[in-house]
C-alpha cells in the first residue's frame, strides 16, 4: 500500500521494567524493521522517551502508532515531522591519520563542530552531535582518510521551541 519512507516516532513511556521490550517487540511482531532506536530518561524520573526510526508506508506508520497507543506503558506517541523538530544524533568516529594530514582532518572537524575526543599516534577519535544527515556527510568526507570505527547513538528528536502548541502531535484520538 504505497511507497515506503522514513518516519521518526517519539514515544513517551512509563519508566518501568520491560517497557523497551514491549515497544521493540511490537515493531518486530508487525514486521517493521527498526532503523534506529534511542531510549533515555526525561525531565521526570518516572518517564522515558523512546525515539524510533522506521522505513515503512504511511499506512503502516499509522497502524503502528495506533498499536503503540494500545501498550499500557505508552503514554503518548507522535510522529516527528522533520521540519517541526530538532533531530540530533551523536557520532563517535576513529580515523586513520598520519602527522601531515592531521591538520586537514582537524579543519574538517571544525567545520562540522566536531570535537577531538582522543588523539593517538596515527589515529584521531572525533565526537560530533548533529543532525543525522549532517553526520552522514561528515562520515563521507572522512572516508578517504580511512575510518577505523564509527558508532552512532540513534537519533533523538524534540519539537522546536518555536513550534505552535499541538503541532505534529498526531494524537490517536484525532486519527481515530
Amino acid at each position: 500500500m504505497g511507497a515506503t519512507n522514513h518516519h521518526t516516532l517519539s514515544a513517551l513511556v512509563e519508566n518501568r521494567p520491560g517497557v523497551l521490550s514491549r515497544v521493540a517487540g511490537l515493531f518486530t511482531r508487525r514486521g517493521f524493521n527498526i532503523d534506529s532506536l534511542a531510549v533515555g530518561p526525561t525531565e521526570r524520573a518516572d518517564r522515558s522517551v523512546i525515539t524510533i526510526r522506521v522505513d515503512c508506508t504511511r499506512h503502516s506508520v499509522e497502524q503502528v502508532v495506533k498499536q503503540l497507543y494500545k501498550l499500557v506503558d505508552v503514554i503518548d506517541v507522535y510522529e516527528v515531522a522533520p521540519d517541526a523538530a530538532i533531530e540530533r544524533e551523536l557520532l563517535l568516529i576513529k580515523v586513520q591519520v598520519d602527522a601531515e594530514r592531521r591538520s586537514e582532518v582537524m579543519k574538517l572537524a571544525e567545520l562540522f563542530d566536531a570535537r577531538v575526543a582522543d588523539v593517538g599516534q596515527t589515529t584521531l577519535l572525533l565526537e560530533c552531535v548533529e543532525h543525522p544527515d549532517r553526520l552522514a556527510s561528515f562520515e563521507e568526507l572522512l572516508t578517504p582518510y580511512g575510518i577505523l570505527e564509527a558508532i552512532r547513538t540513534g537519533r533523538v528528536a524534540m519539537l522546536r521551541a518555536s513550534a505552535p502548541e499541538g503541532e505534529s502531535t498526531s494524537r490517536l484520538r484525532v486519527l481515530g
Binding site: 499506512h59 499509522e62 497502524q63 495506533k66 497507543y69 494500545k70 484520538r173 481515530g176
Partner: peptide, 17 residues
C-alpha cells in the same frame, strides 16, 4: 472500540470509535 482496527485491512470511508 479499538482505533487500531480502523483501516487495518480495509480502508474505512467513515469511522467512529
Amino acid at each position: 472500540i479499538d482505533p487500531a482496527e480502523i483501516s487495518k485491512n480495509r480502508h474505512a470511508d467513515v469511522s467512529l470509535i
